[in-house]
Computed example of a mutant assay.
Amino acid sequence: MADKKIPVRFGILGCAEIARKVCRAINLSPNSTLHAISSRSIEKAKEFVTKNGLSELVKVYSSYEEVLDDPLVDAVYVPLPTSLHLKWAVLAADKKKHVLLEKPTALNVGELDRILDACESNGVQFMDGSMWYHHPRTARMKELLSDPNIFGQVKSIYSSSSFLPPPEFFENNIRTKADLDSFGALGDAGWYCIGVILWSMNYKLPTFVKALPATIRNSNGVIMSTTATLYWEQEGVTATFYCSFLSHETMEVSVLGSKGSFHVEDLIIPYEESSASFSFTSGAAFVDLHIGWNMKEQVVRVDNELPQEAFMIKEFSKLVLGIKDSTIRPDTKWGGISRSSQVVLDAVKSSADSGFKTVYI
């Protein structure tokens, strides 16, 4: 039986910028440790270790294969370009390594299904790298959203995720290259919008989706900005999201219910590491003569002892340790969440690629 005091030993495939944040999270989480880092060049891997002040005990490898072949590595974090996810996630699962995969998870849901099948057949945990799911604020929002006496039924959802990078981003970043990350802003920023919309709907897939003509592509044909709508016919719910590399920083979601509503400005990355808040209103109405409101929105504050990315690592590591200890099986919930997002992501891209036709799911 595995000793629960032994932390989950992570290996990281690649030295992407986001890996710096995840390295820190691995070190902050109480049940994990960074064991190995790899790059296609040993110099780049060593530079990453030095730049991030990592322990001299961290193994440095010049290939991803070496991480997967290291018998001490329990789990791998994969921040590689989306076009490489299928190959390396499947190889990792086949090597019995648990897989924390950066989003978007795959080039299409067929590829993701192959990844999930590999994880299931090898008995390893899968999770994507969407950090906001693991913040205590998210659990508090879901608690209020799920109370029919306070929130009622979801009626409408809006989300946005955007930022304006420097000019060199559009020349060099993998998210602007069709052969590396063909979803562009839709996969990078839109993944969050789609995720929180589906979260609000308890992951029920919409009846159809439609990208709007206000879609901008670069010279490689990669989406730099787009807007899309989702519709649930049975519930009569409409959701709209905007994602872009061409406008200022936004990370918002607003959910309107029959009895209440909430709004978050900093969903993806909270303004502060130690706490996060959201605005909530229930039972709001206009006063007589419609000259004001009967209440102001309530600001709900949630304090947290770890950054959200460390909560993600902690949750993932808890599952890995349970699997190693033979007390639990891999939690397929996380793969299901990723798959729902991938299905909608594929559908929005299909709509944009087909002249903005409605795509039924």
Rank of each mutant, 00 (worst) to 15 (best):
Y158P: 03
Y158I: 12
S159C: 09
S159P: 01
S159Q: 05
S159L: 08
S160F: 02
P165C: 10
P165L: 05
P166V: 03
P166Q: 09
P167I: 00
P167S: 15
E168M: 06
E168G: 04
E168P: 04
F169S: 11
E171G: 06
E171H: 03
N172A: 13
N172S: 14
T176C: 15
T176A: 15
K177D: 15
K177T: 01
K177E: 09
K177G: 12
D179H: 13
L180R: 09
D181K: 03
D181Y: 04
S182T: 02
F183N: 04
A185S: 14
A185H: 10
L186T: 00
L186W: 00
L186N: 00
L186P: 00
D188E: 14
D188V: 01
A189L: 09
W191H: 09
W191R: 09
C193V: 02
I194W: 05
G195N: 09
G195S: 14
V196E: 12
I197F: 03
L198A: 10
L198F: 01
W199D: 14
N202C: 08
L205N: 07
P206H: 03
T207C: 10
F208N: 13
V209L: 12
V209C: 14
K210Q: 10
A211H: 01
A211L: 03
L212Q: 08
P213S: 08
P213D: 09
A214S: 13
I216E: 13
R217T: 03
N220K: 10
G221L: 11
G221D: 03
V222Y: 10
V222E: 15
I223S: 12
M224W: 01
T226V: 05
T226R: 07
T227R: 11
Y231N: 10
W232I: 07
E233C: 10
E235S: 10
G236H: 10
G236L: 14
T238Q: 14
T238H: 13
A239M: 07
T240F: 05
T240C: 15
Y242S: 06
Y242E: 12
C243G: 07
S244P: 06
F245W: 00
F245Y: 07
F245A: 05
L246G: 10
L246K: 04
E249N: 08
T250A: 15
E252L: 11
S254I: 07
L256S: 12
S258R: 01
S258A: 07
K259D: 12
G260E: 04
S261V: 00
F262C: 09
F262S: 02
H263R: 08
D266W: 06
L267F: 02
L267M: 06
P270H: 00
P270R: 04
Y271V: 03
E272D: 11
E273F: 02
S274W: 06
S274F: 05
S277G: 12
F278W: 01
F278M: 04
F280R: 04
F280G: 04
F280C: 06
T281L: 11
S282D: 06
S282F: 00
G283I: 00
G283C: 05
A285N: 08
A285C: 11
A285V: 01
F286T: 05
F286W: 07
V287E: 15
V287S: 13
V287D: 15
I291M: 15
W293N: 11
W293E: 15
N294I: 02
M295R: 07
M295C: 10
